[in-house]
Computed example of a mutant assay.
Amino acid sequence: MRYRNFPMVPRVVFGNGSFLQLGEILMPKRKNSEAPFIFFIDDVFDGQPLITEVPLLFNDQIIFISSEEEPKTEQVDALVAKIKESFPVLPSGIIGIGGGTLLDLAKAVALMLTNDGSAAAYQGWDLVKKPAIYHVGIPTISGTGAEVSRTTVLMGPEKKLGINSDHTPFDQVLLDPKLTQGVPKEQWFFTGMDCYIHCIESLNGTYLNAFSQSYGEKALELCHEVYLKDISKEDSRDKLMMASWHGGMSIAYSQVGIAHAMSYGLSYLLGVKHGIGNCLVFQYLEEFYPEGVKVFKQMQEKHQIKLPTGICAHLSEEQFDIMINVSFGLVPLWENALGDNWKEIMTYDRLLQLFKKI
């Protein structure tokens, strides 16, 4: 029996206002005045007070990036090329500030600055050979678990699949719940449900073990508090940030399941954002996660969240085929959800009927 020896984020700061410590954290990691820190920041912060608090020195650079679309391998390649053209030496580090999209881009660019070729060549498990440059994750919305995971989920020319490697996790994470103030309600719900669905899929999977269970149960308990109880906004921000961290840790040593596999298909074909994609799928998975779906619907009702309908109503056979093949390509997710004989349980036609409901 071989056990996974997986990496964890070595350093983490948590607390309201901890963002102001970023300059002090980065200073010892600065190689010299020629090697900049590159800050990838969600463009919703362009012109906002947060930008004045970014600790820029020398030739450090801010690159604003839209999180409207899922991160792409070609986007990673373009950012790497831009950085290499702009600076004669490798940067001191990459800092991602934003939601899952920004965090995944920061991880991917940090990897690709030291590994040759296109990011698309590294989509899969353990294909990265060289360590990334120093990289820091600072989430401004909670739920994806991107701040703690060993994957960077990217849309490639042929598939949506993460760069899963021991070199992917951040060297430093800064968790400041204050940064999540002002997140629109629907986005707060969909991203939080990404965490909730992580937990349900991990806790009901065949890969479950005491390690992932301990983190998953804590994350699930926190999600229940945030989305079902009436707690203060400050308490809610703190707890959801911790739920995201624990949910990410839970799947680090297990896996997600059916909703995530199907959401990848939706995202690849239709560009549906990951959080809302998970919700669109999960509402129809009662036969696999009965209690989880029941509670999800209670949360949805409490916060008066309406999901779009008819997303797949006008798709062609070819389009359904693409979605299904992308989903089926995520073999570990299906194994975790349904066991080794998953192909006998989730047939092509059964998956097609599920997609047709959305």
Rank of each mutant, 00 (worst) to 15 (best):
K185S: 11
K130M: 08
A259N: 02
Y196G: 07
T151G: 15
S18Y: 06
V9E: 00
K273P: 03
I322Y: 02
K160C: 11
L175R: 01
E217W: 12
E225V: 02
E24M: 03
A81Q: 14
Q75F: 13
P88G: 01
I83N: 05
L179T: 04
V109L: 08
S250F: 08
Y284V: 03
T168D: 01
L103T: 03
E34Y: 12
T144E: 09
I41D: 04
Q298F: 01
K302L: 11
K302Q: 14
Y134F: 15
G162M: 13
V148D: 06
L338A: 15
L102K: 04
W125F: 13
Q172E: 12
F328I: 12
G192L: 09
I322K: 08
G99I: 03
L111I: 15
P139L: 11
F58C: 01
S232C: 07
H167F: 15
V76H: 03
N278M: 13
A261N: 05
N204Y: 05
F288K: 09
H224N: 10
I83G: 07
C199P: 00
K297Q: 15
G93F: 06
K84T: 07
Q298G: 00
S86G: 12
G192Q: 04
I94R: 07
G96Y: 03
I311L: 14
P177H: 06
L56F: 05
K294H: 04
K273M: 12
L266Y: 05
M242P: 00
I324A: 05
L102F: 00
V44M: 13
C195G: 04
E147A: 11
Q75K: 14
K129Q: 13
K306V: 10
E286T: 09
E186Q: 14
E344S: 15
F14H: 04
